[in-house]
């Protein structure tokens, strides 16, 4: 673990370099391998040739989206794990993915909307709606927002939305065809405009998370201690939930539901940078971006020449990790 602030700063810069390298690989590797010289030329002086077109309209947006979405999901995961004080929590537990999926399927089924731009806004609204429902359910009752209530309410709401989505798809083959790829989570085939539409919200949430970091540190000590120290815990929790919604909702809007990044990355970041959220959150952002970029590159090669949705790759990576944490967590108790 990196202990002094200076070491942590160096680590951060190192990760930034890795992230840039991963983005570069993401641009260069794929079904049509591009030489780095060609890629460079395409970015600086695009002559409209086929190879340059692939780089500028397909590979570059894809790399940017993967980096931004990975970073956002990882930060959302770190906030979720702090909020619920549960090492296995992730935005998916708040029903965010299931809510987005449900809204999208409803819109596709009943209103025949199919433009990706529209769908991404619907996904965002669905994610926010699901999170709001979970928040209200878990805040109701005597003792307020306890971590356990949040987790259970989230699981139930997610299960409800997932089942209803499944049911609608079972009766509508056309909708299934349109949303199946989306439902698996993918950063492929998205236009850059999709990212630029959501990016301001994500960037604001990144800044907000950094501002909130020291309050989250206090919250981690437990509700009673935090209250004793004069923190308005419910306000901080509400702010953190809002940030999670922005981060995870924005991600799901661009890339569909991509799981396990939010679970895995905070653990890796904690191993590197410790539990102080002022360092943890930027580490999460960089590591998340790197992981999703790598997963996306892997997704191109698994079933070449077909692509596997990156959400499946992250699940295949994430499940062993999840089980490892679950096994370790119980033993430590």
């Amino acid at each position: 673990m990196l202990s002094t602030n200076r070491q942590k700063m160096v680590g951060l810069i190192g990760l930034l370099i890795v992230l840039l390298a991963a983005m570069w690989m993401s641009i260069v590797c794929g079904y049509t391998d591009t030489s780095w010289r060609q890629a460079m030329a395409a970015l600086i002086d695009n002559n409209g040739s086929n190879a340059h077109l692939v780089v500028a309209t397909v590979r570059l947006p894809r790399a940017l989206i993967a980096a931004v979405v990975g970073a956002s999901l990882a930060m959302a995961g770190a906030l979720m794990q702090a909020l619920t004080r549960n090492p296995l929590a992730s935005p998916g537990i708040f029903g965010i993915n299931a809510g987005a999926g449900f809204f999208i399927v409803v819109m596709v089924t009943f209103f025949s909307i199919s433009s990706l731009q529209m769908l991404s806004w619907i996904a965002f609204i669905g994610a926010a709606a699901a999170a709001a429902i979970v928040f209200v359910i878990s805040a109701a009752g005597k003792d307020g927002l306890t971590p356990l209530k949040m987790t259970l309410a989230g699981t139930a709401v997610a299960a409800l939305f997932a089942s209803l989505t499944q049911g609608m798809l079972a009766m509508n083959e056309k909708a299934l065809e349109e949303v199946l790829f989306w439902l698996a989570g993918s950063v492929a085939g998205r236009k850059l405009e999709l990212l630029t539409a959501v990016f301001p919200y994500l960037a604001a949430a990144w800044a907000g998370a950094m501002l909130l970091a020291r309050h989250v540190n206090i919250l981690m000590m437990g509700d009673d201690v935090a209250k004793g120290l004069g923190q308005r815990t419910n306000l901080i929790k509400a702010a953190a939930v809002l940030l999670v919604v922005l981060l995870a909702g924005g991600s799901v809007a661009v890339a569909g539901p991509i799981g396990f990044i939010g679970i895995m990355v905070p653990h890796m970041a904690r191993a590197l940078a410790g539990v102080d959220h002022r360092w943890l959150l930027p580490y999460c952002a960089l590591l998340g971006g790197i992981l999703l970029l790598m997963a996306d590159i892997g997704a191109r090669y698994v079933l070449m020449p077909r692509e596997v949705p990156v959400g499946i790759v992250t699940a295949l990576l994430g499940v062993p990790f999840f089980i490892y944490i679950a096994r370790r967590g119980i033993a430590a108790k």
Binding site: L88, A184, G259, F260, R306, P309, G329, I330
Partner: peptide
């Protein structure tokens, strides 16, 4: 907890098979 993990894995496999 392990059950939740395995069920996520199965879901991923299912989606993969359906998409291919």
């Amino acid at each position: 907890l392990v059950g939740i993990g395995v069920s996520a894995l199965m879901q991923a496999l299912t989606t993969l098979l359906m998409i291919t």
